[in-house]
Design a protein around this nucleic acid. Structure first.
Lengths: 207, 207
DNA sequence: AATTTTGTTTACTGTATGGTAGATTTTTTA
DNA sequence: TAAAAAATCTACCATACAGTAAACAAAATT
């Protein structure tokens, strides 16, 4: 075994631990949110002591930032794997479904929806912002294509459509339906997609 | 001036101070959310010292609960003043517009959307829960009437429609549009109403 | 095996904050 | 105006938590 492969093995172990920490942080974040998540929680969940976390992430903000970045990477990856020949609304719909599934599976919601502090924190994270802008750029193109194809409302500005779309990924309605209705994951996803594109008004939705 | 009217005057002053505290708490809550709001913040904003707050509210949770209850009272009041002859969607639309306007005016969002801790806290507040159930009952009737009249999608269960409707009152899209678009309050409200009832899909909305 | 290096942990610091006791001021009453 | 009552504030406590220093253990290197 060469020195190189040994190093690489060590690095792999390091990376594995890092992923485990991010997994734990993600679970706890999804469960109680940023403010109630303590670094001791994360350490306990992942089976390390707190100072070890700080070998990987220089602060709580950094840790959460990385967790959000990993989520964005997942979204960008999903987009990249999509067939670009699919219809714009089909692509948006697919990504939204993916995001809902991640969330209902114990993952994070996409947007730091409510808390201004979390939003500000992420805004200060350059790598996060860069990825958000990249994702936003790609989605904006899809939205424009969708408008041209008559699949999306052309009376709404792009940013209204985009922000409303993003908001659906962290829609509290999902959480309330999960808690207080008897629907299963699939029914919730189907309904939320319907509400996103067709709203709650009128009969006979398009999809 | 009789003893009674003096007492009543003192009570009025007390009530005024209480309202001032609730106003301050509401502003701060809207600005930084529950976790970052400290009792010292509130005391400073309202011009009292912290212990004086505790003459009115027995805890931070209690204070925030009362602020939310005041908001619910406003909504119930708005509903009560509506013309019951109006169309169901007209009534829902009017209330949503009211809620958006409250929020954009520095008020609170309706639902404790994101934070599970805040949701749990309010769930333990009996007076709050009672009012939520009352409001929910009234809105459910309107939703059912709307479905019957063909103004609301009858393929969606009542609770999907209701939770999606509530979610619009605290939709983060509003915040993002306010921050990152050049729309004014009226344009934001108009678009958000459109998105709520018609979604973002297809052309030519109904309203 | 001795030495260095790396990683981990225990035990701690500093700060923020919800809440309170008791002194102090203001207002009311007589 | 003096005594009593009410309201308010200063100064504090206890707790929780992000982050760290230094002791300790494990592994790698010689």
């Amino acid at each position: 075994m060469s020195i190189l492969s040994k190093l690489s093995f060590k690095d792999q172990a390091f990376k594995l631990r890092e992923d485990a920490i991010l997994d734990a942080a993600t679970r706890i974040l999804a469960g109680k949110g940023f403010d109630l998540m303590t670094m001791d929680d994360v350490a306990l969940e992942v089976g390390l002591s707190k100072p070890s976390l700080y070998k990987h992430f220089k602060s709580k903000e950094d840790l959460v930032g990385e967790a959000m970045i990993r989520l964005l990477d997942g979204a960008l990856d999903f987009l990249a794997r999509q067939n670009t020949a699919d219809s714009p609304v089909g692509r948006l719909s697919g990504l939204l479904e993916w995001a809902m599934r991640v969330r209902l599976d114990g993952g994070l919601p996409f947007l730091p929806s409510a808390s201004p502090q979390v939003r500000d924190m992420l805004t200060r994270n350059l790598r996060y912002v860069t990825k958000v802008l990249k994702l936003n750029g790609q989605l904006e193109k899809i939205v424009q294509a969708g408008k041209k194809a008559g699949e999306l409302r052309s009376d709404l500005p792009d940013d209204v459509i985009l922000f409303s779309y993003y908001a659906r990924t962290c829609d509290p309605a999902v959480e309330y339906l999960r808690l207080y209705s008897k629907m299963d994951t699939e029914a919730i996803i189907a309904h939320m997609l319907g509400v996103c594109f067709d709203g709650i008004g009128r009969n006979s939705p398009s999809r």
